[in-house]
């Protein structure tokens, strides 16, 4: 069955041969481009698709007054791929110079949950004794930077925060 005398076939026309090879290359590139291109878009798309802004209503502002910060618990619903996940979370809210400020409830040192001490007028972290002032700056202790703030907005006299947008 095996046959290695491959020069015994029909006579070859070298020009036709090159032409066919060119066409094969063109067709294969076409398929690869369509398939590879759409596959690449599909696979690489997370790189340029930003996340959607997910404003969360934390409550009507009518009940809030200037003074001590208060902790508000809320439930956030957001998309995780095809899932809607619901995560309970909380935020420290304080009205400062007529502006609503919302702090991420985790200490900037190692992420412990700090609390507001009404007597000392400061946020105290229980883990390593970090202390933050009402405006979020570090007063003492190991925390390296001020408390993280969530963007806030008021709409229909309801306070909204954007938990994903936390900034120092």
């Amino acid at each position: 069955m095996k046959d290695t005398k491959h020069n015994s076939g029909a006579p070859e026309d070298p020009q036709r041969r090159t032409f066919l090879i060119g066409l094969i290359a063109a067709m294969v590139s076409f398929i690869t481009l369509v398939l590879g291109g759409s596959g690449a878009l599909y696979f690489l798309s997370p790189a340029w698709r930003g996340r959607k802004e997910n404003w969360v209503a934390v409550g009507p502002i009518s009940g809030l007054k200037e003074g001590d910060p208060i902790k508000i618990d809320f439930v956030q619903r957001k998309m995780d791929g095809w899932n809607v996940i619901q995560s309970p979370s909380s935020v420290w809210v304080v009205l400062q110079k007529g502006e609503w400020v919302a702090y991420d409830p985790h200490c900037t040192h190692l992420g412990c949950p700090y609390r507001w001490d009404a007597n000392k007028k400061a946020f105290i972290c229980p883990c390593h004794g970090g202390v933050f002032s009402k405006d979020g700056n570090v007063v003492s202790g190991p925390p390296p930077k001020p408390l993280m703030r969530y963007p806030t907005k008021i709409e229909n006299s309801t306070l909204y925060i954007l938990p994903e947008g936390a900034k120092a």
Binding site: S8, G9, A10, R17, I24, V28, I31
Partner: peptide, 22 residues
């Protein structure tokens, strides 16, 4: 021995057919 070599003659036919189907 009266036929042609697989590359590129037969592969050409295959590729044309595959491209059309694709």
């Amino acid at each position: 021995h009266q036929g042609k070599s697989f590359w590129p003659y037969i592969i050409f036919k295959d590729t044309v057919a595959i491209t059309i189907v694709f």
